[in-house]
């Protein structure tokens, strides 16, 4: 059992490293997601920043809308690339479905967190958003991103086998992510207002359980989606 789980982990890490290396060769997903996020941020900032938006709910809603659509612009690449370059079968032969899902999830999470490190400080500066409780704010972003990338990864696996992948990805992801987005928006707005610990914990609990449920369901279902 010990060797099996260690080989699962090492295979997942191998899939993750493979994706990082091939991403660094083309930088397709990084460029697409980062530029998309910055463009959206500037568009939002230009159109509403002039009015001096101070409402915390509105600011955090805008932040999560930017993050959601940026994620939708690039997180499907992990599986779409395998189908387009016809490497899916080779990957299927070389690793367990679970290892593949976990490796891809780790890659998407890395991508999303890298994006947030760029975009969130920019958002705070350009939109003049004061954040009182930074620790809690980053915790929400972290656990929100885990849930978001878990759902996005499994939907990406589904979408990579369909036609009209780009449009379908956002359409399939949004209803699944709606509970996460609603919670994350309320939570970030609480963090901006400097919420108390009990208040913050209430939201974090939801985000953590969402991520847990989504990852578990994905691990159970992935082999049905992945097999061909």
């Amino acid at each position: 059992m010990g060797t099996k789980s260690s080989s699962l982990a090492s295979k997942a890490i191998a899939v993750y490293r493979k994706d990082i290396v091939s991403e660094f060769r083309t930088r397709y997903a990084v460029n697409a997601v980062a530029l998309f996020a910055v463009t959206t941020l500037i568009a939002v900032s230009m159109s509403v920043g002039g009015f001096g938006v101070t409402d915390k709910n509105l600011l955090s809603a805008l932040l999560w809308v930017i993050l959601f659509f940026s994620a939708m612009s690039g997180l499907s690449r992990v599986f779409v690339r395998e189908e387009e370059s016809r490497t899916a079968s080779a990957l299927r032969l070389s690793a367990d479905p679970i290892a593949i899902y976990i490796g891809k999830l780790a890659f998407n999470l890395t991508l999303l967190l890298a994006l947030e490190i760029i975009v969130v400080p920019m958002f705070v500066v350009m939109m003049n958003a004061g954040v009182r409780n930074w620790t809690f704010f980053w915790l929400i972003l972290l656990f929100g991103s885990v849930g978001l990338s878990a759902a996005a990864t499994i939907v990406a696996a589904i979408v990579s086998k369909a036609n009209a992948k780009g449009a379908l990805f956002a359409v399939l992801s949004f209803p699944i992510l709606a509970p996460l987005l609603v919670t994350a928006i309320s939570a970030s707005s609480a963090a901006m207002g400097g919420g108390a610990f009990a208040d913050c914990w209430r939201y974090l609990r939801v985000l953590v359980s969402y991520a847990g449920v989504m990852i578990t369901a994905s691990v159970l279902l992935f082999e049905f989606i992945w097999e061909d």
Binding site: I158, A162, V171, P175, P179, V206, M214, A217, S218, L221
Partner: peptide
Amino acid sequence: ALRSSVEGSDRRAALSSAYAIIAFVTVPF
């Protein structure tokens, strides 16, 4: 929308069943 954009009935059935189950587990939230 997913069902209409997947070719091959086996694949369509597997993918849409998986999506239906994933969507269903988010309903309690």
